[in-house]
């Protein structure tokens, strides 16, 4: 298997975190997932400050971003990332329950790389997460400076 990129999951709901990890586990992608529980923590991780001040250098290969988050919401996180000269290279995928057009339009306007509505049906959900994981963590070549773990063959 080729190298696996790090996935930063920004999700406040523990049930959603568990379901997402379960879906990623089936394809052995779960080890490279970092979980942050709100927008503020996600930004701390990206800027290596606060609780994440000591983490090793490098950006995630992709950021899976929920929109409805405590403290700093998803759109604000997205805006901050896309306005930052260095962070804007990180691919951001909005992963949300909202099918509302205004969320979608706002996200694309801010420069999101993909917008995925979490399907209610579990099989579809697993498929969506798996395909996202495979594409962004394995197939896609992330920008220079991203963390990638060499995969075991």
């Amino acid at each position: 298997m080729s190298a696996i990129g790090r996935i930063l999951l920004v999700e406040d709901d523990p049930n959603d975190v568990e379901l997402t990890l379960t879906a990623l586990e089936e394809y052995h992608l779960a080890n490279e997932v970092v979980i942050t529980r709100d927008g503020a923590e996600a930004l701390d991780y990206l800027y290596r400050r606060g609780a994440h001040a000591d983490r090793s250098n490098g950006s995630p290969a992709v950021l899976l971003l929920d929109l409805k988050l405590p403290k700093v919401d998803g759109l604000e996180v997205l805006q901050e990332i896309k306005n930052d000269e260095k962070l804007r290279l990180i691919p951001v995928v909005v992963l949300t329950s909202s099918r509302e057009e205004r969320d979608m339009v706002a996200s694309y306007r801010l420069g999101v790389n993909a917008y995925v509505v979490k399907p209610v049906d579990f099989h579809e959900f697993v498929n969506a997460i798996r395909e996202l994981g495979i594409f962004w963590a394995i197939i896609n070549e992330p920008p220079p400076g991203s963390i990638k773990r060499p995969g075991a063959d």
């Binding site: 709901d13 049930n15 959603d16 379901l19 379960t22 929109l67 409805k68 949300t96 329950s97 909202s98 099918r99 509302e100 979490k118 399907p119 209610v120 049906d121 579990f122 099989h123 959900f125």
Partner: peptide, 17 residues
């Protein structure tokens, strides 16, 4: 749209598991 879907997804997901 935002809030009713999430618990539904969890119901379906964990029942499936």
């Amino acid at each position: 749209s935002h809030d009713l879907r999430a618990p539904l997804r969890h119901m379906a997901g964990f029942s499936e598991l």
